[in-house]
Structures are given as C-alpha cells and as structure tokens.
Design a protein around this nucleic acid. Structure first.
Length: 173
DNA sequence: GTCGAGATTATCT
DNA sequence: GATAATCTCGACC
C-alpha cells in the first residue's frame, strides 16, 4: 500500500449473527462471506454509495466476527495518504473515520479477503497492551445498535478518534 | 467553532 | 425498490 504505515487508534467490534448492527446478522451473504472465513483477513464493504470500510476478521472459519477499523494515525507514508485524501488539510484528518482510513491506505473493494500476513497488508501488534477506553458504538443504524453494547474501543485523548455524534438521525429525500 | 442535509451505488428484500 | 458500519460542504453562531 505504497508504504503507508498506520497506527490504529479506534476500532469497533461486530459479533456477526448475534449483533443486530452487523452485516452478518441476517446470515451469510455475498458481501459478508469473508467474515465467515478464517481470521486474519480483510473484510471490505461498500456503504452509503460512496464509502469503503475495512474490517479485520478475528473469528475462526465459519463464525462471523470482525473488528471495524474506525480511525488511525498515519505514522509513515503521509505523502501517499495525502495524495489520496485531497480533502484533508491536516495529517490527523487523513485516517479519522472508517471511510477516510480506507482511502488513506488505498483500500478498495478489490482488497476484500486479502490476508493481513500477505504482501499487501501486514498487521503488527504492540509489544505491550495499549491503554484504551470503551463505549457505545457510533453510527450504527441497526435496531438498538448504539447504546446496547460497549463494543467500541479507542485510545483516550487521541486526536484521530472520531468526533462524530453517537447517532445521526437517518433521513432520505 | 457547531449543526444540518445531500450525495451515490452495492447489496439485500 | 429500499437500505446503508459515512463524508463533505454550506450555513450559522
């Protein structure tokens, strides 16, 4: 991915079939097939007609759980990231938000199913546990999705963590 | 600085 | 045909 290195600062958990906010809640489909696959792979999906989001599959084959990468900080390769994210003025804006994160890293639907241990992606875990906070999920419009489960994890005080409101009133024209 | 509404398409019912 | 795990832009304070 053009040598871009990202430090993940915010994630969100999705527990597949028991999670009303998950794409896998209603069962396997073409879109979420990767989530049912082996762990350590990238699950990408297209949403709102214009945005791509990335998850990391973390359950064994046959179980659909994943972690949505919500925000991160570009620590290397800001050049390439900024080129892709022309609307961002600051470095902290480059990966502040799920869709932005994907654009900054150059992740597209074509990357769905890719391994995190392959040539395209490489996941590195910190040597020691990272201090983090937990809270309700944001932006999920599924039934009771926002305040039912504290499945959002982020690094307190980090400038790249999503500042968005807990729930947006969904409307359509 | 905060607040509100529109954009746009893959996937599912 | 309806929905969606969001972002950006414009208006206002």
């Amino acid at each position: 991915m053009d040598g871009v290195t990202l430090r993940i600062t915010e994630v969100e958990a999705y527990l597949g079939e028991i999670d009303p906010g998950s794409h896998a809640f209603r069962g396997p489909g073409k879109r979420n097939a990767v989530m049912y696959g082996p762990p350590g792979h990238v699950y990408t999906y297209f949403t709102y007609g214009m945005h791509v989001c990335a998850n990391v599959v973390c359950s064994p084959d046959g179980i659909a759980t994943a972690v949505l990468l919500r925000a991160g900080e570009i620590v290397e390769g800001t050049d390439a990231a900024r080129r892709r994210r022309t609307t961002s003025r600051t470095d902290t804006d480059l990966a502040r938000g799920p869709a932005r994160l994907c654009v900054a890293l150059g992740i597209t639907l074509a990357d769905g199913g890719a391994s995190l241990d392959g040539p395209r992606f490489h996941l590195e875990l910190p040597a020691s546990p990272t201090p983090h906070a937990t809270g309700p999920r944001t932006g999920v419009s599924g039934a009771g999705g926002t305040d039912q489960y504290p499945w959002r994890f982020w690094i307190p005080g980090d400038p790249t963590v999503s500042p968005y409101k807990p729930a947006v009133a969904k409307k359509r024209s």
